[in-house]
Write a protein that binds this DNA or RNA. Structure first.
Length: 113
DNA sequence: ATCCTGACGCGCC
DNA sequence: AGGCGCGCCAGGA
């Protein structure tokens, strides 16, 4: 059960392409547990696999979230992947990972970025 | 099996 | 806008 959830979470995170990010809540939802954002964090913390780009999992609202060892590294990693930073926040609306979407959303009438 | 902790999220103050 | 508290879930002791 939970073990299955964990595997699904890892699978989802693995599918996040470079230059794109997903919130803990998003990953949880994609894994089938919309309310398990915190659990995703727990899993990420324990995650140490090289094939899992855990740095692409961020907090809600573009918050950086955490990163064992080096939050700075996480920020640098994301930035080098093309993620636009708004101060300490991420322009998540521009790079939010959505299954099926390969292109990043256009600016449209975006309010203050 | 139980209790405590923690890379979260959101409503309130 | 920032800080606090409560709710949710899974992992570890």
């Amino acid at each position: 059960m939970s073990d299955d959830f964990t595997a699904r979470v890892l699978s989802v995170v693995r599918r996040i392409p470079p230059g794109r990010v997903a919130t803990y809540a998003d990953v949880a939802a994609l894994a089938g547990r919309p309310r398990a954002a915190r659990a995703v964090g727990t899993i990420m913390r324990r995650c140490a696999r090289p094939d899992i780009p855990c740095h692409r999992v961020v907090g809600a609202g573009g918050r950086l979230g955490g990163y064992a060892g080096n939050p700075l590294l996480k920020r640098a990693l994301l930035r080098s992947e093309g993620i636009t930073f708004n101060g300490a926040r991420i322009a998540i609306d521009r790079c939010r990972f959505v299954p099926g979407r390969t292109r990043r959303p256009r600016a449209r009438s975006s309010r203050r970025a």
